[in-house]
Amino acid sequence: MRKRILIVEDEANIVESLAFLLRRDGFDVSTIPDGARAVGEAERVTPDLMILDVMLPNLSGFDVLRDLRAHDGLNATPVMMLTAKGQTRDREQAEQLGANLFMTKPFSNAEIIAQARRLTGLDP
C-alpha cells in the first residue's frame, strides 16, 4: 500500500517539483492550493502526511493546522510545515499547534524526501 501525501501549497512550481519528487519516490500525491479547502481535501484523501505551507490563500497554514488538530479523524496526521520565514516565533507557533516538522524555504530536495519517509514511517 503506497503512502499518501497531501501537499497544501499555492506556488504552482514548488508543487510541481515536490509532487514529481515524491511520486518518483513511491508516494501517492494529492495537491491543493487553497487553505480553506485543505481540511476537506484531507478528509477525502486521509493522507499519511500533510506538507503544509504557512502563507496560503483564504486560510493560513497555522489555521489549517489548528483545524486539523481539532478534527477527530485527522488529528494524528503528521504535518510538515513549509515557510519562507525562518523566524523563531513562527517555528514556536507551529510547534505549539502540533506541527511535527518545520522546514524553511529554500529547502533541499533530499531533505524533503528523507523527512517525508521518516514521518510516514517508511524510514526510522
Partner: peptide, 11 residues
C-alpha cells in the same frame, strides 16, 4: 524572493 528561490533550486 525565498519562495522563488525555492522553486528554482528544487526544479
Amino acid at each position: 524572493m525565498l519562495t522563488t528561490i525555492t522553486a528554482i533550486r528544487s526544479t
